Amino acid sequence: SDNTPDQAPRSSAFQPACREMCSACSKKVYPMEKITADKYIFHQTCFCCKQCKKKLSMYNYAPLYGEFYCIFHYQQLFRRKGNYDEGFGRAQHKNRWLLRNAAGVVSHESKSEA
């Protein structure tokens, strides 16, 4: 009887302030502690280098495949193998191109023989 048509009931007026989850720890991230980097959301304390665990900021990080590194380790891992894929423990990206090109050559050869 208190509620006029213009007022919402009190129970629905409260909305939780946090709906986002940290990409590192999977816990709720509140706006005051939120950092967004490369479309990922973190707590300020969870945003750290994968290699050395040093806390990162928006000015000193480098992303690669959804993982984040301090500038020092990003450069060090690149120098180790001379490319980003092998330096970071992945198969070389050029291998995918070679396989794709080889498959394309086979399909073109089979079409020309027909």
Rank of each mutant, 00 (worst) to 15 (best):
Q15T: 14
S107F: 06
K94A: 14
G87S: 03
T4I: 13
W97V: 15
V29I: 11
C48H: 08
S57D: 03
K81W: 01
V105S: 08
Q92R: 14
F78V: 09
M32Q: 05
C49Q: 01
S107M: 09
Y84W: 03
S11T: 12
S110M: 10
C52R: 00
F14R: 05
E20N: 12
P5W: 00
R80Y: 07
F78E: 02
C46D: 03
Y61N: 07
I35S: 05
T36N: 09
A17I: 10
A13N: 12
D2A: 12
M32N: 06
Q75E: 15
G104K: 08
E86I: 11
R100Y: 06
K53C: 11
S26F: 04
R100V: 07
A91K: 07
K54R: 05
S23Y: 03
P16W: 01
A8T: 08
A37Y: 00
R10H: 13
S57C: 07
C48N: 10
Y69C: 08
N60G: 08
K54F: 07
Y65G: 04
C48L: 04
S112Q: 10
C70A: 02
D6V: 15
L56G: 03
A8K: 14
P9I: 06
Y74P: 05
C52D: 13
V29C: 06
K54L: 11
Y30H: 10
A37W: 00
E86L: 14
A103E: 10
Q51F: 10
E33P: 05
Q92M: 14
F47G: 04
A62Y: 04
R19E: 15
C49P: 08
R90Q: 09
E67P: 08
Y84V: 13
K111H: 13
C48F: 05
C18L: 06
V29L: 04
G87L: 02
S107P: 02
H43L: 10
R80D: 07
P5V: 04
M58P: 12
G82D: 01
Y30V: 15
L77N: 06
L64A: 04
S110G: 04
H93C: 12
G89L: 02
K53V: 12
K55G: 11
Y59G: 07
R19V: 07
S1P: 12
Y74M: 07
L77T: 03
A102E: 04
Q15E: 13
H73G: 09
H73K: 00
Q92F: 06
F42T: 03
G87N: 02
A62K: 03
A114T: 11
F78H: 05
E113L: 13
D85Q: 09
Q7G: 09
S112N: 08
S11C: 11
C48Y: 02
T4R: 08
Q76H: 09
S26V: 10
F78N: 04
E109C: 14
